[in-house]
Structures are given as C-alpha cells and as structure tokens.
Simulated scan of single mutants.
Amino acid sequence: MDDGYRVDVTTVVAAVLFLAGIALVVWSVEHFVEAVARSAVSLGVSGFFLAVVLAGVDLENAILGITAAYGDLSSLALGTVFGEAVFVLAVAVGVAGVLMPFETRVPRSYLLITLCVPIPMAALSLAGTLTWIDGALLTLSFFPLLLLVYALERRASTRYMVAEEVEEVIGLEEEAAEGSTSSDGEDSRGSWYHLGVAIAATVGMTVGSALAVRGAEGVLTAFGLSGLAFGATVMSFIASLEELFLTVEPVRQGRPEIAVGNVVGSTLFYVTANVGLIALIGPVDMGGAVLTVQWPFFALALVLVVAMFYRGRVGRLEGVALLALYVGYWIANYL
C-alpha cells in the first residue's frame, strides 16, 4: 500500500509540475510577445506580416520542444510540433467554422506557400532521421519564407492586410494573455519597462519549460505512455489553447484575415524552424508512428484547410469535418 501511495503521489506531483510549467510558459510567452510588439508597431509593417510573425511564431511550442530535446525526449518534442500543427488547422479553424461560419479571400500566393512549405521537411524525413544538418537547413529556411511574405505584403496586388490593422493583432495577443479587451489609448510606458517585461518573460519561459518537461517525463513513466503520442495530444492540446482564441476571436470580430495570418504563420513555423531547432539538438526519429499517424493527419488537415480557404468559405459542415479529423487523430495516437 505504501508503494502504491508513493506512486500515486509521484504521479500527481508530476502532473502538477507539467500543468504549472505549461501555464507559466504560455503566460510568459504572451507577455514577451506583447512587449516586443509594442516596439514593433512604430515600424509600420504590414498587419498580415505582423500576424504571421506574432501569432504564427509559436515560441512556447519551440521552447517546450527544445527543452524536451535537451532532456533526451526528442519524440515528445516532435509530438508537440505535429500536435500543435494539427490543432491549429483542425480545431482552431474547425471551431471558428462551427461557431461563426466565415468567408475570406486569401491571395493564392499565400495558399501555395502554405501548401508547399512542408515539402522540405518531408523530403529530409525520407532518410528516417533528421540530423543536425537537416535541422540547420530547416531552421534557416524559415527566414526566407518570412522575407517572402514581407515582400508580397509590400505589393498592392498581393497585400492581404493594411498597416492600420497592426494594433488589432496586438490587441488580440493582449486579450489572449490577459483575458480582457486592450485599451485604445497609447501605451505611455517607456521602452525600459517593455525591456524589463521581455527579460522577466524570458526567465518565466525557461523555468516553465523545465517544469513542464520534468512533469511530462514523470507522467510518461507513471503511465507507460509514448512520448510522441503524449506530446501530440495532451501536451500540444494544453499548450495550444491560446491558438484557438487567436483564430476564433478575429473571425467573431469580422477580421478573418488575422485568423488566416495565425494559421499561415503557425504552419510555416512548425515545419521549418520549430522542428529544425529540435533536430539541431539531437537526431529525431521520423519513422514508425511519425509516418503512419503524424504525417497523414497533418497533411490531410493542411489540404482540407487550404482547400476551404481557396474556396473562400469555412462553414459549419466544414468545421465539423475538421473537428472529427482531430478526434480521429487522438484515437490514432493511442491505438
């Protein structure tokens, strides 16, 4: 009985560490993004470009993945990449479609980029393992993609959002972090304040990711779970909840362009820099369930969402189909 009690206590402690770590990472990342965004507004960059960078670049997932990889849990790290990618495509877009069917006219160039961007990762995965060289190539490929989006946004024929919408993107980031509507007034706090917030948030991200990975390791040991499956489902689901807000809320406000920016930016980041940074730390096994579960569900979700955006409408039927796909994804991970 004492042994069973000790196991139960250990499991509970591990679960609490995991949840507390995830919460601290998410909170820290959102405050870090807000602090950086306040400095970026003055640059007058395209709103869609800023949405791709601020909403799409998922720092918490990257930090959790890197910390897991350093802890010799590369399968857990890879699971978070695929899991969050599928979550953004299937759950975030699906819920938005079910609650508030929306129409959007996405420039074809962005749809083509989003559809083709996983190809390098898929090609490098054919060898069965991603090496540090593959990781370097994938990480470096993210920056030309950002420059491409920036260049397209500077052209009137492909511009998707105007500069005045930058404040809306930042406002949504603030609401996701604080659960309240941002003020329309100017932020009178100085740059030193925002620098301090960014530094404090960086410390929070580091501590939170360490706690989350330590807790996840304890949960995996206690229940005998696969790191890949756990990362792709439980860990990515909890860490991705703010992605749901950043997709649904813009649609509710009649600004689906911001939601599309989140989807496009997230997809670009997950399959380039995110998985690349993990591979830089250590070899990543791309065989087994990665080929039979992760890639097929991710590819299907991506094709469906791109097809919906191409058609220009995401309705309730499409939303239900995406949510059903995500349910199937969870089931497939544990079969």
Score class of each variant (00 low, 15 high):
254 G>H: 09
234 V>Q: 14
192 W>I: 10
196 G>Y: 00
205 M>F: 00
238 I>Y: 13
244 L>A: 07
199 I>P: 02
235 M>Y: 11
204 G>L: 05
213 V>G: 08
205 M>S: 06
225 L>V: 02
250 P>Y: 03
206 T>C: 06
242 E>R: 06
253 Q>Y: 11
241 L>N: 09
251 V>R: 05
196 G>V: 04
206 T>S: 12
208 G>W: 02
229 A>E: 10
210 A>D: 13
252 R>L: 07
214 R>C: 01
220 L>K: 08
193 Y>S: 09
223 F>N: 05
218 G>S: 08
210 A>E: 12
230 F>G: 10
205 M>G: 03
235 M>A: 10
212 A>H: 00
203 V>G: 02
250 P>D: 03
203 V>H: 02
233 T>R: 14
245 F>T: 11
215 G>D: 13
228 L>G: 13
247 T>Q: 00
197 V>E: 01
245 F>V: 15
223 F>D: 08
238 I>S: 14
222 A>Q: 04
195 L>S: 05
227 G>L: 01
244 L>P: 05
235 M>T: 02
210 A>M: 09
212 A>N: 00
201 A>I: 05
204 G>W: 13
241 L>R: 12
196 G>Q: 03
196 G>L: 08
230 F>S: 09
235 M>G: 06
225 L>F: 15
218 G>A: 09
250 P>H: 01
195 L>N: 00
232 A>V: 03
205 M>P: 01
221 T>S: 14
218 G>P: 10
193 Y>D: 02
196 G>H: 06
243 E>M: 14
253 Q>E: 15
227 G>C: 04
237 F>G: 00
205 M>V: 02
239 A>W: 00
198 A>S: 14
225 L>G: 04
244 L>F: 01
230 F>P: 07
206 T>W: 15
234 V>G: 05
226 S>Q: 11
208 G>T: 02
234 V>F: 14
247 T>P: 04
244 L>V: 09
201 A>S: 15
221 T>E: 15
202 T>N: 04
242 E>V: 11
223 F>S: 04
238 I>M: 14
192 W>V: 11
203 V>S: 03
254 G>S: 05
196 G>I: 01
241 L>Q: 10
244 L>Q: 07
213 V>T: 14
230 F>N: 12
198 A>C: 12
224 G>R: 01
230 F>L: 15
204 G>C: 08
205 M>I: 04
243 E>I: 01
195 L>I: 15
221 T>D: 15
226 S>C: 12
233 T>C: 10
197 V>P: 03
229 A>V: 05
239 A>D: 10
241 L>S: 09
248 V>G: 04
236 S>M: 07
243 E>D: 09
240 S>Y: 08
216 A>Y: 01
224 G>Y: 05
